[in-house]
Design a binder for these strands. Structure first.
Length: 405
DNA sequence: GTCAATTCACATGAAAGAGACCACGGTCTAGTG
DNA sequence: CTAGACCGTGGTCTCTTTCATGTGAATTGACGA
């Protein structure tokens, strides 16, 4: 056994593939962001007044995932902070909050708590009235002259969960501050988000707007090439690998992050195979692996009731596959009830299951469309978007986790 | 045949309850001098 | 006398139920050509 392990470790030691894998990881911040020069300049121009200690216009950024929004804004942020340090007249703080992380920001309370924590205060996780947290927030900010810029990434998620008067409160907060000033930057990948807002909030939040268009395949290639040059040893990339990665990602609305992930995982797969070259086939494998990991991870961590609902969906779509009939809400609910009985679990109402189905849609495991069959009623048409192989795996996992507790 | 009303099977919303967690302030207890 | 243990109250959170209202088009049925 020891010898075998040695072999495994040895082969990793040789590092046949990577020179610097970190360059391909999502956390890596490149020093240059290709094809985003224009946006960066504009952001900088909009935010520049903070260097004089003035409030900036609120700013709103759109763009699909992986179009460089977060990267660009963080780039500008770092530059601003670098400069502002030289000016002792006031404090500049730019805080970044990702509203997608559930633990951080499912509620108004938590977002505020998170902000306060970042600003050096502390708030209990629960127990205080929200108003008290607001007051504490204001108190902390207004202690001294502070120019505060709040960046809310994926702000649409937060608003969906909370309601938009959170944003209203926030934009109105300036009037309660005597010394300090707050600027808000919202980032959203839902292009229709602004339209769904209350007009008053909309106008105050989006004093400035900026759109990040998706990268096209050529741009993606360029980005990948730049990174790959330093991330991989020379000569490990087979011809066409970059092109294929770019093509895959371009299909996914020009998602650069996805492209980089693909490349990195393809590299890892090659490494595991003891290959010293990344072949095109590894890209396909990597693509599959990303999908699989994403879904299996979700499935594993989902609570029992969710798993039962998903199991019902998976089994039904299996049944219906030959007939080419899609699955509908009612079918799912019926089977779900049976499964609950079988596993001695209490049965949730249809109302709740309806919501659960919708959550699976948002997680990207199923595809949902509301259709009307005329007098036959109105319901969701549910399609599983995972391959058969993964669906099988999902079933296995759910069965396991249901039987073990 | 045509057109509006009807009807189905849910979707979608709003409100509120249950049970868990927690902070805060007050009261009680035990250890200390 | 004081620090810490121990309540009770009131707040939040998540998950869920209950009640209410909305909805798109197939079907129905009355109507007129």
């Amino acid at each position: 056994m020891g010898k075998e392990l040695d072999e495994i470790f040895d082969s990793f030691d040789k590092k046949a593939i990577f020179k610097d894998k970190f360059l391909l990881q999502a956390e890596h911040k490149p020093t240059a962001i290709p094809h985003r020069e224009e946006q960066i300049k504009q952001i900088a121009a909009i935010l520049a007044p903070v260097l004089r200690g003035e409030r900036t216009s609120n700013l709103f950024l759109y763009g699909k995932t992986g179009t460089g929004k977060t990267l660009s804004i963080q780039f500008v942020r770092d530059e601003l902070l670098k400069r502002a340090r030289k000016n002792p007249d006031f404090n500049l703080r730019i805080e970044y909050i990702n509203c997608k992380l559930r633990k951080v920001s499912d509620t108004e309370y938590r977002i505020l708590a998170e902000l306060i924590k970042k600003l050096g205060g502390s708030v209990p996780d629960t127990g205080l009235p929200t108003v008290a947290v607001y007051n504490k927030f204001i108190e902390i900010i207004d202690k001294e002259k502070l120019i505060l810029i709040l960046i809310f990434d994926e702000i649409d998620q937060a608003v969906k969960k909370i309601s938009d008067n959170f944003l209203y409160n926030l934009t109105r907060l300036n009037s309660e501050l005597s010394k300090s000033q707050i600027g808000v930057i919202g980032i959203s990948n839902d292009l229709t988000f602004l339209d769904s807002l209350d007009p008053r909030i909309k106008s105050s939040l989006s004093e400035e707007e900026l759109v990040f268009p998706p990268y096209n395949a050529l741009q993606l290639q360029e980005i990948l090439k730049k990174r790959a040059m330093f991330a991989f040893k020379s000569g490990v990339l087979q011809d066409g690998v970059i092109e294929k990665c770019a093509a895959f990602a371009a299909r996914e609305h020009g998602d650069a992050r996805r492209a980089l992930d693909l490349l990195r995982i393809a590299g890892e797969l090659a490494e595991r195979d003891n290959s010293n070259k990344i072949h095109v086939k590894y890209i396909d494998e990597a693509n599959e692996k990303i999908e699989r990991d994403k879904i299996l991870d979700v499935v594993k961590t989902e609570p029992k009731q969710f798993q039962l609902v998903l199991l019902a969906i998976v089994e039904l779509s299996e049944l219906q596959k030959d007939k080419k009939e899609p699955v509908f809400t009612g079918d799912v609910y019926n089977l779900y009830q049976e499964l609950c009985k079988k596993h001695k679990t209490e049965i949730l109402t249809q109302r709740r299951v309806s919501d659960i189905i919708q959550e699976f849609d948002m997680l990207g495991i199923i595809n949902v469309r509301v259709i009307s069959k005329g007098r036959g009623g109105r319901m969701r048409e549910i399609k599983l978007v995972v391959s058969n192989k993964i669906a099988e795996k999902v079933k296995e996992i759910i069965h396991d986790s249901l039987n073990y507790n």
